[in-house]
Design a binder for these strands. Sequence first.
DNA 1: CATGAATGAGGCTTCATTCAT
DNA 2: GATGAATGAAGCCTCATTCAT
Lengths: 217, 217, 217, 217
Amino acid sequence: MARRLTARGAQRRRELLDVAARMFATEGYHTTSVTAIVERLGVGKGVFYWYFDSKDELLRQILADAQHGMRLAQREAIADEHDPVRRIEQGVRASIRWLSDHRHLFAVLEFARTEERFAPLIRAGEEQAVADALPHVAAGVTAGLLRREDPVVLATAVLGVSAHLARSLVLERGEDADRVAEAAIAFCRSGFLASGGAARRAVADDLGASGTEHRRT
Amino acid sequence: MARRLTARGAQRRRELLDVAARMFATEGYHTTSVTAIVERLGVGKGVFYWYFDSKDELLRQILADAQHGMRLAQREAIADEHDPVRRIEQGVRASIRWLSDHRHLFAVLEFARTEERFAPLIRAGEEQAVADALPHVAAGVTAGLLRREDPVVLATAVLGVSAHLARSLVLERGEDADRVAEAAIAFCRSGFLASGGAARRAVADDLGASGTEHRRT
Amino acid sequence: MARRLTARGAQRRRELLDVAARMFATEGYHTTSVTAIVERLGVGKGVFYWYFDSKDELLRQILADAQHGMRLAQREAIADEHDPVRRIEQGVRASIRWLSDHRHLFAVLEFARTEERFAPLIRAGEEQAVADALPHVAAGVTAGLLRREDPVVLATAVLGVSAHLARSLVLERGEDADRVAEAAIAFCRSGFLASGGAARRAVADDLGASGTEHRRT
Amino acid sequence: MARRLTARGAQRRRELLDVAARMFATEGYHTTSVTAIVERLGVGKGVFYWYFDSKDELLRQILADAQHGMRLAQREAIADEHDPVRRIEQGVRASIRWLSDHRHLFAVLEFARTEERFAPLIRAGEEQAVADALPHVAAGVTAGLLRREDPVVLATAVLGVSAHLARSLVLERGEDADRVAEAAIAFCRSGFLASGGAARRAVADDLGASGTEHRRT
DNA sequence: CATGAATGAGGCTTCATTCAT
DNA sequence: GATGAATGAAGCCTCATTCAT
């Protein structure tokens, strides 16, 4: 493609991206036909192919935009924060808020992972996310603020908690995004063990059982 | 369906379920045609429709079997364990191991969530999983072993960490399932904060900032 | 494809090839839709794709069959003939008769030459035809029966006369194939010059002007 | 159409005709889209429909121009020649040269014959060509210079040889146009039989020999 | 039980053509 | 004169499903 677009053209393109993303999220990618998309917009089928080479390419564009948007949101969130731990926390907040605000994109991203031709894009995006978080995690570990654990594991775990709580509690159960974000942060900080005597005892058990560090090989 | 099957018939049916699940996982549901499935097995198309009413029904069956299998694995894992915390940990171990052993089913479950007609099954399954874990979590909280937090949140977070680390580290990065399970457990127990003074300080911050409890409304 | 076909299946396939060839000849390849073909046969669209991978492949099959058929006809025609000149003449007769009997295939062959993706097949077929005729022509030249001229040129010219007269006079003007065949042969044998003194004079002119032999360099 | 064109307009129109003809020749008529044509010229689609009513009309124009051009070339070639035989020969030379110089138009003419809506134009053109040659052929027959044969047959045969040798040897095998023209003329004059006693003897006997080489290098 | 064959709705895409600016 | 945008019929092909044998 790479068409030179007028202002109106760019607008149309955005409309298509948006409508399609929402329909993909609701109905599924394969279940949403190009015909359905253009009908929703009340335009001819040719319009679609004027702006996109194919349905696949449209999805790829949606994915790229989504990943870009989320990354931007995260960067903004940590821009003014210098403490590694707080940075991570801000990242979690930004992620959950973004997922809440763009739940349709979230669904699309999830679908894309299930099809071989799109999955690499998703994996690349997730690796990027881990890579983005890594320096802060590593800094935290170095500073003695974070548990001595493989930073990749920590970063991945934090992202997993964020995404999962966002989907389960916010998107599916309809809970408040901010409240869930704080819960996610609390869990990421301290896990589920109670602090104090009971927790200490449990921690001690754990130490005895398998050691503190679980290094990746 | 509910056909009376001979021994050989039951075998055929299982073959179909298995082959289909693996192909769905690799190629995607829509991308795998019924024709492709029966060709892989070297049988005619009639065979497929002898055992299943439709492709959709086949998928539903796969999903049900998968959820059933995972639940069984988890139950077995905690059968001999009476301590709430250890039960949860055993559940995490069992989940990650099962996901590692049945990675194709994992992929299929993920796809199913993205299509409106299958999503309810997945949501039901996940709610079931949370419900299964809930008593142990609640018991842990009551006993003062777990942090005073909404048990649903804790259970959901634990499941999220398990699933996400399993996919990211085991399935995608090829790490060892057992090692990842231990890392997941460590994270679930204590989060990412270091346990020394720094951690305590951080915990204090957190308490001051937003309180310990994040109740669901 | 390469499907194992039952007797009925093979029959269907032949029907499709035949109907399609006739429609292509009349309407043109691009102007004849797959839908039109199957409708003519009163079958569903799937039937077409059960027997052929694509419309292109169907055409290729038609072309291959046509070239094969024509070659067979030519071979049969010269089987009992040992004189080189007579062999060529029999070939001309067979070609014109075949083209007359399979005029629809003739038209399809002509179309195929005009599209880059099919043209190589046609060119190969024509080179084959020249190659088939070459030994007889060469033998004739060697024996002093044919004019000392590049056999490739002679063979090509003979084929050109046959095809062109068949199309112009038989197919388009509706003349009798056998009569045209004899005229073609007469022309090929002696050209257009009268054989009396006038002809000799003309031949002499020609010799003076550019020589008898036109060797290729 | 019949639009009043400015000088620049006429130029544009010619560009379109030329570019389109070349693309049709290379890719085929149906395979070359209007979009492709205007893109090649770097203009908008409106331009095309400013100069032509439709793609079909464009092709018709190309065909008419081509036929006109070839006819002109032939007329010029025989303008200064009064001998019937030489006139024919000059016509052959002019045809082959023209086909060589306008090979793309040759291809387009060939395509047009394969589609019912354009075929009449081609047939008319060919009949015209025969009609053009007819007087000279008839004169030659009357004068006893040409074999006593239906002049239509002779004219058609000559045209067939010219076109076929031009395509096979010049366009496809890349031989020199002038050399091929002389070979075509020689064939048209005397056919393939050897002249002189050898030929006569050969015809009488039934020599079935093979031997020395008349190989192309 | 099983197969080869058939069905036909519907999907994605192309493209000649038109139109507003 | 020209352009970008839009139209929508129509094309090729896929595929879940059914049926005769």
